[in-house]
Design a protein around this nucleic acid. Structure first.
Lengths: 241, 241
DNA sequence: GAGTGGTCTAGACCACAAT
DNA sequence: TTGTGGTCTAGACCACTCG
């Protein structure tokens, strides 16, 4: 049964239960799950609450609905790559690779040019500039330059930038990271990049530029990355509008 | 006022109205919109219906909520690139470019190797193979090879493949395209690709591989594309899990 | 304390699919 | 005709923010 006195919302409890059934293969790909009315009687909760749980699972790709027929289990969520906005550290861990960092630069500089626009700062406002070589399983994977407004991220020290910046921002600063827009393009390595990435000049690289925002819509960071084309593939899940 | 007798759902009418206000700048970035209770009184609809409208606008990035404070207009949706699962034709149009197609190959072949797995077919099942040069504003943009199971997409003729395949699938066949997983990687053009794309050997290209599914989870297509690195940038919106 | 979003109820009618 | 999801109502209590 569900615990209605728990501080955990009932719809969330039901969500977890259905997700469990799917992951335990009690409900298999293509199976119809009990109807909303049946679930609402079974758990003695209202149908709207059942719908809230199912809505979330549909949004997350676990279930799909067919009007007049029922709600069904979608194909395996298993072995899907990590989706969404993740840090390099999280990305590598989800790929089963060991992330490491080599720090090249850690300075505070006045904002200028594109940084002002993208981070919505006044000219000259201080910005943390962090340039790092990112390694995966001891080999260079990417060259990453991060720009963070000092007024948002205070108290940042060199020690923090060897691990996951996102973890520091979320757990230490208590800020809630919301979303990002990212562009990806193919190009070839420039001379200044070849050494850090241990590749030849002219080797293909993936250029990634990310603007991240907090949940409250404040610009959080601008990141420019150069990934080795021979080592990195970007995965994305697309939903038909 | 809203039309409660319209076949258009009330929550959707409210959605459009709020979206209009935002696009007309009656509600500006950072503005608080009327509270859910106010909207429900104003339009004489229940608060749950208001919430359904607002939920959708939050999901689509037009609004964001802060508990205990209110619901606010997010930063400009304007000039955001097309998101989600789109065809080449749709993608180019959204970028303000004129899409065209040069057909290189249009055959039916027995499925084999990776195609079998990705499209979940039996060995030897017939598959449409469509190889096209995709142009944007009269210049080659990509070389695209599409694999479609014949049993799903019947009656496909050469005439269809000069335009948007997605449009044919959705409006002519009445199939509902659902989602896709896509990988992107940087590499350099191979000899066989240079001519069609009008680039030099060794030029950077973006390799994109897409597996698309119908709303009912049936595999729909496998597409392998080679985009010119100097002309194409991929945009993606990422949400923090 | 007043206002906000978050959760939840116990119904209702509709359109659609299958029998 | 029965069962399904889609929409909608008119309330309710909670936790949170702010003055």
């Amino acid at each position: 049964m569900l615990d209605k006195n728990s501080p955990i919302p009932v719809y969330y409890q039901l969500e977890e239960r259905l997700k469990d059934s799917i992951e335990k293969r009690e409900l298999k790909e293509g199976d119809m799950i009990p109807s909303e009315r049946v679930l609402s009687e079974q758990y003695r909760i209202s149908r709207m609450t059942v719908r809230q749980a199912i809505n979330n699972l549909v949004r997350d790709g676990y279930l799909y609905r067919i009007k007049g027929k029922g709600t069904f289990v979608a194909s395996n969520k298993i072995e899907q790559p990590l989706q969404g906005l993740t840090s390099f550290t999280e990305d590598m861990l989800s790929r089963g690779l060991k992330p490491e960092t080599r720090l090249l630069q850690f300075t505070v500089e006045p904002a200028q040019g594109k940084i002002i626009q993208r981070l919505k700062l006044a000219e000259g406002e201080p910005v943390n500039v962090i340039k790092r070589v990112r390694l995966a399983d001891n080999l260079p994977m990417a060259l990453e330059t991060t720009f963070l407004p000092v007024k948002l991220i205070s108290g940042l020290t060199e020690a923090h930038v060897y691990g996951s910046l996102y973890e520091y921002i979320e757990t230490q600063l208590g800020l809630k990271i919301g979303h990002a827009t990212q562009t990806l393009e193919a190009t070839v390595a420039r001379a200044s990049e070849t050494e850090h990435l241990q590749i030849q000049k002219g080797s293909p690289v993936l250029l990634i530029e990310r603007s991240s925002y907090l949940a409250n819509q404040h610009p959080l960071e601008l990141v420019k990355s150069v990934y080795r084309g021979d080592r990195y593939k970007f995965n994305v899940h697309l939903q038909r509008p």
